[in-house]
Simulated assay, not measured.
Amino acid sequence: MSKVILITGASRGFGKIWAEAFLKRGDRVVATGRNIEALQGLSDQFGDQVLPVQLDVNDRQACVEAVNRAKEHFGRIDVLINNAGYGLFGAVEETSEQEARSQMETNFFGVLWVTQAVLPIMRAQKAGHIIQVSSYLGLIAAPVLGIYNASKFAVEGLTETLALEVKAFGINVSLVEPNGYATDWSGESAFQAKPMEIYGPVKDAFQKAVSVPGFFGQPAATAEAIIKLVDAPHPPLRLLLGSFAYPSVRKVYEERLASFEEWKAVSEAAHGSN
């Protein structure tokens, strides 16, 4: 049976690739984007299978209206993929208040608004799957991406809590955590904070690290993984994407556990005596 899938940020990158993959296999897709003209190609190719919707996820009321329109048009929403977001590059000290707030508005609050809008529909259906596109940088940190890291850490905490709250309603929840991919996330879609010379060496080291051959995955290769996730009867809470994600996360988590163990006595003493 074909599914109705709502994808935010579907005009480019992962969102467009996944929308095309679902449409090609016969699913119906609600494709949202800030610029509806950028979604015209999907409509031209797939006709009535796709419903293009202009949406700025920073606008909470617009999120409610877009979700309700999707429900009215197709009769249900089986899957929500919260994909809209962008990267903000800059050291923490370099980042302006407006840049930080804008990053959180889109990457965190946008996810929250669309999620809240779809929950009543999925609860009424007693079924649904909410997929939040996070990042492996929602599990570990990288320099020069502090506010982006923070936004994805926030999405991780929100989503893990959500999964506990809605399981009884028949709603599955997943986090997709890609490593770096060759999309325009770090190019045209990215924002750069005003640089401070003192952070030049940190940025040079970061650039050297991501310049390793093969560091960036091929976006088209993720389509099969997303289809498997959507089709899984018991989907995982977390799905890492890319060959660099797992070893990077494992290394950091092993270091964290070792540090917790080293300071265990201090931690336990801080509880006090009963």
Rank of each mutant, 00 (worst) to 15 (best):
A193V: 06
S267G: 11
L42S: 12
L158A: 04
P233I: 03
G85A: 13
G187A: 09
I171E: 02
V155T: 04
S96F: 05
G242Q: 00
E97Y: 01
Q103M: 03
S96K: 10
S267R: 04
G90P: 04
P201C: 03
P178N: 03
K251A: 13
A84N: 09
A21N: 15
A142S: 08
G146V: 04
A163Q: 05
S211V: 14
F22D: 04
K71G: 00
N149S: 11
G110V: 01
G146M: 02
Y136L: 06
D27S: 12
P120K: 07
R28K: 14
E177C: 06
A182Y: 02
M122D: 08
G13T: 14
F244T: 15
G15K: 10
L42G: 14
L51P: 03
R12P: 02
I121F: 15
A190L: 07
D184E: 15
D48M: 14
A117P: 10
A66L: 11
V53F: 00
V79Y: 02
A193D: 03
S243V: 08
G187Y: 08
E105V: 04
G187L: 13
I227A: 05
I17G: 10
E93N: 06
L164P: 07
F260Q: 14
A221W: 01
L80S: 11
M196R: 08
Q192V: 10
Y136P: 01
S267K: 15
E255F: 06
A38P: 03
N58W: 01
H234A: 12
W263Q: 15
L257M: 15
I227M: 06
S134H: 03
E254M: 07
K152F: 10
A269E: 13
A66F: 11
S267L: 09
F46C: 11
K24N: 13
N274L: 09
L257V: 01
L137Q: 02
A220S: 12
T183V: 12
R12H: 11
V155N: 02
A38Y: 01
A38R: 09
P120L: 06
V30I: 13
A168M: 08
L145D: 00
K24F: 13
V4Q: 13
I147C: 05
S151F: 01
V266A: 12
I147R: 00
R60I: 07
P213F: 13
D27L: 05
K167D: 09
L137A: 03
E94I: 04
R256W: 13
Q192I: 03
A269M: 05
D78A: 09
P178R: 00
I226S: 14
G13S: 15
Q132F: 08
K251D: 12
L229E: 07
S11P: 01
G180P: 00
Y253M: 15
G33H: 01
D204R: 14
A62Y: 08
Y136T: 00
I140E: 07
